[in-house]
Structure formats: structure tokens, C-alpha cells
Design a protein around this nucleic acid. Structure first.
Lengths: 158, 158
DNA sequence: TGAACTTGATAATTATAGCTATCAACTTTC
DNA sequence: GAAAGTTGATAGCTATAATTATCAAGTTCA
């Protein structure tokens, strides 16, 4: 029942790359080109094989299902979802230094999520955004305000 | 040249109710019904005469010009602008107590700006939202992230 | 007093964001 | 080695959000 990294056969966890694009599209009820568009817009960072083919994890699907809801139900558009993600106080989550922040395009932007930028010379340079807690913890673009609340109230320590 | 409150004839300040709806619409280049819609959506709280007729201040015009830009240029829709305003850390700006927050619909909502709610039993009950700094200081819906930054970094000081 | 405004509401229009279909070229897989 | 799947790109469609046009009824104020 547990998902440990040390590998057995049943090493199944929500962030394992599983579904090829066709399956992912079907799971979400959308077309393949749209799924690709969502990636360009920065809504998901799917795993890519060496052959560049995408594989989507269950978390990826969940994430996109939320985005979908925001677009179709909440009537926030693509640009709105991008803005919502851009509001995440990533500099707090990552503990960016003043220097880090000054070098970060994402810090002041409200255009698109921080993980849509290429990061030079700051704390985000070292590891890929797909492994970053800012990306990973925000499966749900509707919960950004909770994060803002959390990080404004007591310096995030609660 | 100065705008003092103590009244002379030249008591002209940016938040004086000046323009009737027809003029305001022309200044913004939109129709009257749209201007009315923007009010329903919570983008502006114009002064109302006893006869219920609206008068818009220059600040109201500026505010709506920003909203307009966000909708037409940034492609954030009406719902997106509402969400942006909802992200303002009003509880910090107003210094809401825990009790205040628990009684506040706006606190957790990311649907619409706090000043769109009716406030009972909390600190916002006492004075109209049109006079609240949360409303007044956010003429520009594109600057919400600055506020988030400010209020996450050092508890709002500095 | 009456012309010119306003109000709120509904219906109709328009513009476009969101989405899909299709394409040729390339990969993977069995 | 061939079928099935992928890639990126472009063009076209569609649903609907955004906006305007109208309406009757009520105000305002020369």
C-alpha cells in the first residue's frame, strides 16, 4: 500500500509518468492539441522520454482537471489561470534571498507561473521546476489564496 | 494647487464625484450599460446622489481604465479581474483579528473583491467600503502582486 | 412643464478566446 | 518494416464572454 522509492514492481505513486498523450487527453476529455497548448501555457510539466514523448502522471491529470474547471466553470480564462499561478508566493516557499529575488523574472511578474521561466543565477537554477515544491504543491490553481493567507499571517510559520 | 479638505471653491481632488454616467462612459470609451455592469461586478463603487444617480470621480475613471486594460489587453476576463482583486491581502491591510476573519466571507473567497461583500460583525462593518484603504489603494488591478509581496516579506513593514 | 437625463432589465449583437481538425515529418514499437 | 503513435505548426470552427441596443418608468432641473 505504501509508495516507497526503492523499487519493487508495485512502485506506483501519483507522480509516476504513466499516460501517453492520447490517453491523457481522453482522461481529460479534451483534444491532444489542447493538451499541448496547456503545456505551452505552463499549466503542466509532463515527464518527457529521451524521444521527447510525453508521459503524464496522475498528478498531472489532476492538475489539469483543476485548470479545466477554472476555465470552463469559473470562467477564468487561460490568462486568468496563469495569473493565479503567478500569485503564488514562491519566494517565500523557496526562501529566496534578496539577491535571488532581484535576479528572478518571476518575482514581480503576474503574467505566468514562476516555473514557466528559465532561471539563471538564483536558487531555482539548480534543480528543475518539475521537482520544485512551488510547482508540486500547487496541483490546484483554485487554492492559491490559501497560500497567500498562509504566508502573510505569520511569516508562513503559523 | 493643494487639495485640502477644508472647503474653498477650488477644492478639487481626484476622488471628488464629478462625472455623471454618460460622461464617464464617454471618457472610458464604453457604453453606459457596460459601465453599469462593471459596477455590478464590483470594479467600482461610484458615489450616488440621494436620487440614486451615479457620479464618478477621476479615481473611478482611472480604476476602470485599468480594469479595461486588463480585460482588453491582458486578456484576463471579468472573472479574472474579480479574482485578482480577491487576492489582495485585505486582512493584513485592515489588521483583521482572528474573529474578524472567521466572520468574513471575503477572507477565503477568491471569487470577488472583498468590497463586494456585505460585512456583518467584523471590523469592516463600521465604515463603507468606498472609504476603505483596501478599495482606495487598489486603483490598479495589475498591482495586486506588489501588495502580496509587500505583505509577505516583512509582515507588511518596510 | 417638458426635454433630457436617469434608472433597472432584457434581448440582440459582436468579437474572440477556446478548442478541434488536419498536415507532413519523424519515432516508436512489436 | 510497417502500423500506430508522436511531434510541432497552421488553419478553421464554435461556443460564449463581452459589449451594445432597446425598453418602460421614473428623475432632474432649466
Amino acid at each position: 500500500m505504501q509508495n516507497k522509492d526503492a523499487g519493487g514492481i508495485k512502485n506506483i505513486s501519483a507522480d509516476m509518468p504513466l499516460y501517453p498523450i492520447r490517453v491523457a487527453a481522453k482522461l481529460l476529455g479534451i483534444s491532444i492539441p489542447l493538451l499541448r497548448l496547456y503545456e505551452i501555457e505552463g499549466f503542466v510539466l509532463p515527464y518527457k522520454k529521451e524521444s521527447k514523448q510525453r508521459l503524464y502522471s496522475q498528478l498531472d491529470i489532476d492538475r489539469l482537471a483543476c485548470v479545466r474547471k477554472a476555465i470552463t466553470e469559473r470562467k477564468i480564462g487561460i490568462a486568468g489561470v496563469k495569473m493565479a499561478f503567478a500569485m503564488i508566493p514562491c519566494w517565500k516557499i523557496k526562501g529566496c534571498s534578496k539577491a535571488d529575488r532581484e535576479k528572478c523574472e518571476a518575482y514581480t511578474s503576474s503574467e505566468k507561473p514562476c516555473w514557466s521561466y528559465k532561471h539563471f543565477d538564483n536558487v531555482c537554477e539548480t534543480s528543475p521546476c518539475s521537482e520544485c515544491p512551488v510547482y508540486r504543491d500547487f496541483t490546484d490553481c483554485n487554492h492559491v489564496k490559501s497560500a497567500i493567507i498562509e504566508h502573510t499571517n505569520n511569516n508562513g510559520k503559523m
